[in-house]
Each structure stands twice: as structure tokens, then as C-alpha cells.
Design a protein around this nucleic acid. Structure first.
Lengths: 212, 212, 212, 212
DNA sequence: GATGAATGAGCATTCATTCAT
DNA sequence: CATGAATGAATGCTCATTCAT
């Protein structure tokens, strides 16, 4: 937080800020936050390292800006309209969107995760963004419950968190870590949605009751 | 990998290794891997920093040992026997165990996650441990499917991964980040299991009861 | 030296120079010479840092101007007319004036001293100003000696220097350092003058002669 | 203050500290505090710059040590025994000692003065050392006053301060600045003492009373 | 086997000064 | 003339690792 967005008036300065942000993003993606040198960032923007400090307090400052921007983009992309009589469709769409975006920006997600593990405040930022998404899903569920579409037994908050957890970790493994897993967002979203819809266990199935 | 476990013969040397591992674990938990100083670790074991290098190649070496040991403990704790005719009961138990262990060792999990984001090889270690757990669940599911207990539509691997994802992320938020969430492993495991059993959505369209 | 006084023709330029000098003086007093930023000086004069260099060669240049001006003010204030038949009265008055001025401008004195310790040439400036004062006193003494008012044994130059030394250091401690000392210029000047007049030791007192 | 004296146990470490202090003193005398580089100090002690930080927190730390040591040496040198029935002799001796020491260590005095102007805490150290000397003289005067040797009109504290001021500033000009002045400590001490003894003005002289 | 002293690479940061606009 | 963006030299400091004792 603490860090304000740089607001520059002259066009030249605005260009410099933009170039620095772009360069920082590239350098961070390439080398990670810890190994990124301010001089590299500046150089990537065709600026001297001194110029960097005209616009940003330090490396952490520009990192915050880069990540905030990314989180914001991500939020925008994932946001979907809620269709009342088909709540699962909305959730499925949002899930798919999340996976798509992750797949396309796995490097930035990697960065976000890395920095979070090293910088408490960034982690808070990240988690709060996640929770923001959860809370939207939670609201959808609450509404759906009012419509009698959702099992009364479920706490919408927990359920939303669990959904988010599935998406996030699956995406990390599939796209971030490149594990050998189904990659198609549609297929994965489908699977998740089905799990949500009917559970894993066969409806007709005999003994699959919750064990106690 | 690369690093062999230190195998010392003399009792004195064995004690030194044990003390260093213990100290390293404490220091890592307290300060994180990056900020941990070798000298602190040595000091915590009542040894000089020079002595450290008699037993470990470098800081990374001891970190690997500490983390491998933790992962191993974790695996042991989470392993449960599979009860064929009550697969959900087994899964529920394993889930609960996982959450319990996480709650009790959230600092070590935090460490493991941190280091993973900074050291590729450690991340592999961590992910493979996770996948090991997934694969056990996957095998349970496959077996349950053969018994007709599981919906044919589900890919056991994906399902297992999704289950693991829920546990892991939920635990991270609840215990690692201390977010304001349900903390009781039993309650959470219950929720997750119920989701698995019947899905979120009401079967009858009505007020879908929780299966007992 | 080297630096010429800025002589600007247009009224605008003259105003700029005046504003810069004023601002520089304030910034120097507030932060000291070393920590003063050219940009702060310029800003204080409502000018860009680039404009600064239109009027002054560099930071040192304006510092010289500020200090020369201060020294000149000081000289003017301290100058007193010599009353032939009452030399002590003149000296006392000059002493008092010196102390008064110092008390009122202790920040500038602090600056002058600071810069002197860091810039040989400034120290010369300062010392020469001091010696200029000394030499006036010395001339007074010489004249007084010719009149038989002063003990033949005294070298006027040394005596003048010693007088100046007393004033300067006392003022530094009392006004510059804020030590817990008599602050009233009149009282201090009185003391000093009395010392000059009759020495510390009791005239009638027994064995207080100069030890050899 | 804040800084503790480095107390090292092993002889090697003690030698390193001594070498660093010696080197620091030389570098400081040669280049002044501000322009001295830690690396130069280390190099002068045949050590790497890293080694420096094993013993000292930073440049300021070693500077404090160097200056404290110097002040202490100076105090020791100047301290003289007080001869009750010849107070002036004691004062004269102390004066002479002060001048001698200053002449021999004018570079260190220059350093002390320079640093004081830039570091508040050092200035306090310096001033307090000075005042310590003053207070000793003050005590001598008080005692002498009790013996009826000193004019009742004099405040011993002010008088002591004035004496110190004369010595200090004279020494600075003569030895520190190399001005063209009498350099022989005996002669100067003589002059000062005479001033103290009988004042500048001729006893028999006509109108030289203190002007009011 | 220990000790702990020594090494030295590596990077962030500041700000006086210059110069394109 | 003024602006304010860009330059870039210069150095303090850390700590993993090595090595003399």
C-alpha cells in the first residue's frame, strides 16, 4: 500500500513511467522479483538507473504497481454476469475465464505467488483479490439458495472458497508448473462444475454415503 | 536432490547434525529461508559457522534436508487405510488428517511454500509430494469406480487433484494466513466431503438434505 | 573566491537571484550545507532546478554568496567608533555587539563554521573576517598603548586575538550550542571587559603573581 | 554514544581492531571524515572491507572510537596538579600543555572540529570534553578565591570558559590554520597568563577603567 | 575436528549537473 | 529563458563460503 501510483503530468514522464512498468514486468517475469536488478529494469526502458528513482521509490514500489495492475486485469477478466435461473452456468463461465486467464499469464501468476511468499503485504493483496472473487461467488450462491437451487446445508462462503481453491491450485499445477494434466479450460471447468453439480459419487450408487 | 543425506558415524558428529537440523528448522521457521543466516543456524546448534560446512555443503543443502524430513512426516501423518466399502470415509479421514497436520505445522508449510517459489527443485519436491497424495486418492477412486460407487463421468486423477487443491488452499488461508474462516478440521473436512458426495446443488431441486 | 557576484540586468533576473539567495540561506540554515539540495533551493525560490544554473555556477557558488553577505552584515554590525580616551569602552561595545549579533544569527554562524570545516576557502574567508576584527582591535590597542593606557608588555596582536577568541567561543557555546551559560550579552561583555581591565587575580591579593 | 567499544578476545581480532583504528585515524587525518572510504580504512589495515564490518557497525562507529580515544589522550595530557598557593602556575602549566598537545596533534583537532560540525553527537562529546577542562579550572579558581587570591567579582565558571576559549581558538588559528602567529606554547601561555594576572590595561595607567 | 577471522562479489541509491524541448 | 527529465559516478554494506590456526 503505502505506495502511491505515480501520476505524471508531462507526456515524456508518462512515457517513462509506462516504459518502466512494461520493462519491470518483463524483467520480473524473466528473472523473478528477487533477482531483478533495478538497473535492468531501467535499461529495459532505455533509461538510466537514476531515472528510475524519479518515478519509483524503489524496486518494491514498482513491483506493487506491476502486481496491482495485473490483479486488476485479472479481476476484470474473470468478472461475469450472474444469470439467476442458471447459477451453475455463471459459475462455470467464471471458472473457465479464470483458467483461461491463468493459462495466458502463468508467468505473472508465478511472480505474484513468489512475491507473496516473500512480502507479507503483497500476499495480503493477492489473498484479498482471491477473496473478492470468492465473495462474488458466495453472493451468487446465496441468491441461488434463496431460489431453492442450492442445498441448504452448504455455507456459501466455505463453498465459494473451495471452488476458488480448486481453480487456483489446478491452474497452478497445470499452467504454472506445467504438470502433465488436462489443459483445456473448457474441460477442466466442466469437470469442476460437474463436481459442484452432482458430487463425485454416483447418485444411484449404493453405499457412497458420507462416512462418519 | 544432488544432496545426499549426511551420514555420520561418530556419535558426536551425529549429534552435531541433529542439532544443526533442529536449529535450522527453527531459524527457517522464524526468519524464512532467505533471511536465515548460516551463522545463526550454527549458533543455535552451539557450533561455529565453520563447523556447519563440515556437515552440509551449503545453506541449500540443510534446507533440503529440513524440508524433506518435513514432507516425509507429513506424508506419514496423512496416510490412511482405504476401506473399500466406505471410500468416502477414507477420503474424509485423510482430509481431516491433512488439515490437522497443516494446522499444527503451518509455519513449516509456509516455509515450504516460500522456498518452493524461489527454488525450482524444492517446488518439484513439494508438488510431487502433493501428487503422491493425489495419486493415492486417485487409486481409491479408481477402485471405488470399479465397485460402481463413483460416477463414471469423473476422471479419478482430476478429481483427486481437485480434492487436494481444496484442502491445500483452504488450509493455507485458514491456518497459514490466519484468515477469518472456520478452523475446525472436522467441520471443514465434513464440508468438503459433503461436496464430494452430493455436490453443491440440490438434487431434488428442493432443500437437498445433507446425506448422512 | 573564483566566483563573481551574479550581476543581472533585467529586473526579473535580479528578483530571481535575490529569491535564490534568500531560499538558499533558509535551506542552508535548516539542513546545513551538505544536506541542502539544489532542487530545494530552487523550489524555495519558485524556480526549476535548471534555472538555478542560469544564475549560479553550482551549489558552492551560491553558498559563497550567502556566506559573504552574512560576513559583511556581521562586520558592519560589529564596527564601532574608537573613542581615544576610553579604549575599553570601545572594546566593550564591540564585544557586546558581536555577542548580540551572534545570538541573533546563531544558525548562520553554525553554517559558516560547518562549511569552513569542509571547505578550506570558506574557512579562510571566515578566519580573515575574524582577523579583520582582531586587527581593528589591535589598532585600538596600539593607539591606546601610545597613550600609555596599556601595559607595555602586551603584544597588541596577540591580545586582540585572545579577545576575539573569548567572544567567539563563548558565543558559540552559549548561543550556538545552547549550553547552560549566562546569555545576556551585556553581562558577558562586562565580564570580558573586566578581565581585560584588571585580570582575574586580585591586585591586592597575596602571591598571585605570574609563575615562571 | 550508542556504540560500544569493540572488545575482542582472540589476539588476531585484537590486532585487526588495532590496525583498523590506526588506519582509520590516518585516513581521517588525511582525507577528513566525509571523504574517507571504509574500503580505504580496511585496505590501510591490510583487510578486506568486509572484515571492517566484523568489528565496527559503520564508518561512524570507528570514527567515534578514534575520536574518543583522542579526547581521552588529550585529557590525560592536559591534566595538571593544582598547587594551592600558586594557582596561576597551575593554570599556566595546563595552558601550556594544552597548546603543546594541540600543536602536536593539530590534524586530529581539525578532524574533531570537522566531524563535530557535521555530527551533533560528536560535537557534544567535544564540547563536554572542553567543559570538563573548564570545570577543573573553575574548581581551581573557586579554591583560589577562597584563599583570597582571586578577585571576588569573577564568576569562576565564566572565567574558566573564557580561558579555555582563548587557548582553543588561539591554538586553532596558530596550529590548525597555520596563521602567521606566535607559535611557542610557552610564550603564548605566558601571554595568556599575564592577561589573567593583571589584565591588559596598565595598572598605573590613567583612565583605563571599565566604561559603563 | 573446530574455530572464527577474512574474503569479496554484488546492487541500491542519491543528487549535482546537463541538456532536450 | 525556463523547465524538468535524464544522467551516472561513487560507495556502503551483507553474508555465504573459505581457510589459516
Amino acid at each position: 500500500m503505502e505506495y502511491a501510483d505515480p501520476v505524471e503530468k508531462t507526456p515524456k514522464a508518462q512515457r517513462a513511467v509506462a516504459a518502466l512498468l512494461q520493462s519491470a514486468r518483463e524483467v520480473f517475469e524473466r528473472r523473478g522479483y528477487l533477482d531483478a536488478r533495478v538497473s535492468d529494469i531501467a535499461e529495459g526502458a532505455n533509461l538510466s538507473s537514476g531515472a528510475f528513482y524519479r518515478y519509483f521509490t524503489d524496486k518494491r514500489h514498482i513491483m506493487f504497481n506491476v502486481l496491482r495492475q495485473f490483479i486488476s486485469e485479472s479481476n476484470d477478466y474473470v468478472r461475469v454476469r450472474f444469470t439467476e435461473d442458471e447459477p451453475l452456468r455463471s459459475i462455470r463461465l467464471s471458472t473457465e475465464r479464470y483458467l483461461e486467464f491463468y493459462a495466458q499469464h502463468s508467468n505473472m501468476h508465478r511472480l505474484l505467488l513468489q512475491v507473496g511468499k516473500v512480502d507479507e503485504e503483497v500476499e495480503l493483496l493477492r489473498v484479498e483479490a482471491t477473496e473478492h472473487w470468492h465473495s462474488r461467488i458466495s453472493r451468487m450462491l446465496t441468491r441461488a439458495r434463496e431460489l431453492g437451487l442450492v442445498d441448504e446445508a452448504f455455507d456459501p462462503d466455505i463453498a465459494a472458497t473451495l471452488l476458488g481453491a480448486m481453480c487456483e491450485t489446478y491452474a497452478y499445477l497445470a499452467y504454472g508448473m506445467g504438470r502433465d494434466m488436462e489443459k483445456d479450460p473448457k474441460v477442466v471447468a466442466d469437470h469442476i462444475t460437474r463436481l459442484w453439480e452432482s458430487g463425485v459419487f454416483s447418485r444411484t450408487g449404493g453405499k457412497g454415503e458420507v462416512a462418519r
